[in-house]
Write a protein that binds this DNA or RNA. Structure first.
Lengths: 213, 213
DNA sequence: TAGATTGTTAATCGATTAACAATC
DNA sequence: TAGATTGTTAATCGATTAACAATC
């Protein structure tokens, strides 16, 4: 029964990393850890770690620290990794296919339910156990199941229209790999953007900056 | 001759998005724009936009606004997109191949110089004009050129050793697609992490949170 | 009990927003 | 000149760090 006050975006974005580090510790047989030890491993302050966890409840024990397994589970529950959310992927190009194969959806709380494309060459092919479906069958597919998330790996020009279409299928959240700012389409959708090129430009900035001192 | 005071990470991460929006405006024939117009397009405050640009110089004109072309160019120069940085990609699996094909390196200020893998099946194959090279030839390849960035698409277990190896080849920045926290390896390297699964978990959190109101 | 480490409040720091004088 | 909009300073807000009492 977590308290769950208001949780800042900054904290939320750190949860996956905590989860990952704790998973690693458990694999290595570590059963407990103090905020201080964890802070030095993760390059954070012990204070921040305690503040972060305390948004959700009291998971530690004074004079002892945190039990790694309990903390790992709690964070997993906080993120809802056990809820079995569902996703469909749109666009079976290089990137879409690679993601369908490579990403560990289950570890992140999702099941990938289907992959759609509009190219006759792709439709009917198999990717990691899923047939690539004709995107014209999207509405029918969604009408019989609850799909939580759309993964957008299609060309940017087609993204906005696809989002509108998927919204009318009841899909309310998007993992967006296009360069379009789809968050502007509707305030009601939840969007997680991965503008890959933006990250590369940040790297460029930093290299350029390092040249100048 | 920009002034370039201290620039906060928050500002830096917004630069690619400004650049993108300005490029779009130029394509659409828009020649000038005020901070107010731009703010409503981008869902920011006009104040923030003016503050951001003023880290680097005075690019606008009172009573008039900003010239889109000039601003676009300035931001491009600030990020060093014209510097021709170089990158090599390690790991020609699904993800590595998709990135090599799909990413517009030039638009982000880079040239992809080579792709390396250790699997005999991959070595010798072509990806978007590049031969996949044997990773054992990495040192030799780097000895004759300046490589700025390593793109890490290899399995996580191999990442740490590869970073050390690449550092000794003079590579000092990394675009990291593995789940390893390689920034902890050395304080001297510049790292841009793309922990894809982390983003998906954040989406999971938000869906879970929405369920509870 | 003494030592350790949490949970939590208070202080600091940084980033965003508001306000307005400068100026095109 | 009058209107618009920047550049910049001051005020606010949010996030991080420090400090310490509570307690295992």
């Amino acid at each position: 029964m977590p308290k769950r006050r208001y949780v800042s975006p900054a904290v939320i974005r750190r949860l996956p990393r905590y989860h990952r580090f704790l998973g690693r510790l458990i694999e290595n047989g570590v059963e407990r850890i103090s905020s201080k030890e964890l802070s030095s491993m993760m390059n954070l302050t012990a204070s921040q770690i305690r503040q972060d966890f305390n948004c959700f409840g009291e998971f530690g024990q004074q004079g002892y620290g945190y039990e790694t397994k309990r903390l790992h589970n709690e964070i997993g529950e906080i993120m809802g990794l056990d809820r079995g959310f569902t996703a469909v992927l749109i666009g079976a190009g290089n990137l879409g296919k690679a993601f369908a194969k490579h990403i560990d959806f289950n570890a992140a709380g999702f099941t990938l339910e289907a992959v759609f494309d509009n190219s006759p060459e792709q439709i009917g092919m198999q990717i990691s156990g899923l047939v690539i479906r004709d995107v014209s069958a999207l509405e029918e597919f969604c009408s019989s199941r609850k799909i939580d998330t759309g993964i957008l790996c299609l060309p940017g020009e087609a993204a906005a229209a696809m989002v509108t279409r998927m919204m009318s299928c009841g899909i309310k959240s998007f993992w967006n790999f296009t360069h379009e700012d789809i968050s502007l389409i509707s305030p009601d959708i939840i969007v997680e953007n991965v503008h890959l090129t933006d990250g590369l430009m940040v790297l460029c900035y930093q290299l350029n900056d390092a040249l100048k001192g």
